[in-house]
């Protein structure tokens, strides 16, 4: 069982490699898109590198709940409904959704994931 520190170090290495960022930029609080400049295609690479580094399988929907965010049942006027938030929490128990909950605009979801979220996700898979 890897320690949280070991997980962070491996996640950090994967992000440095995939995004061409400096090690000190990859802090636990850094957001993947806003702070580290990840674009959608980078996630393909990040997921691949994490799968290799930790010998785990990462189904795409576990990290990217696109089906929830595009489901009319869970989205109203561009915002995720309470029911949708509950779905997101169930699907992404490792993600910190507290800030998103205060103004759950679908368009902001893409910039939600932090390095710490990713570490917590990986830890649950180990």
């Amino acid at each position: 069982m890897a320690s949280s520190e070991e997980v962070f170090e491996k996640v950090q290495a994967a992000l440095v490699d995939a995004l061409g960022v400096e090690e000190d930029e990859v802090t636990p609080e850094a957001t993947m898109v806003g702070d580290l400049g990840a674009e959608s295609i980078d996630f393909l690479d990040i997921v691949f590198k994490l799968e290799k580094a930790f010998a785990i399988n990462i189904p795409r929907e576990e990290l990217f709940p696109d089906d929830i965010l595009t489901n009319a049942e869970y989205v109203k006027d561009g915002k995720v409904t309470d029911q949708g938030i509950a779905e997101l929490k169930a699907r992404l128990p490792w993600a910190n959704l507290s800030r998103f909950e205060s103004n759950p605009r679908v368009q902001d979801f893409g910039n939600l994931l932090t390095v710490n979220d990713l570490c917590r996700y990986v830890e649950r898979k180990l």
Binding site: I41, L44, V47, F48, E51, R60
Partner: peptide, 10 residues
């Protein structure tokens, strides 16, 4: 091919 997904590949 190292990785093949629905939206891309490495």
């Amino acid at each position: 091919v190292l990785s093949l997904q629905d939206d891309g590949a490495i």
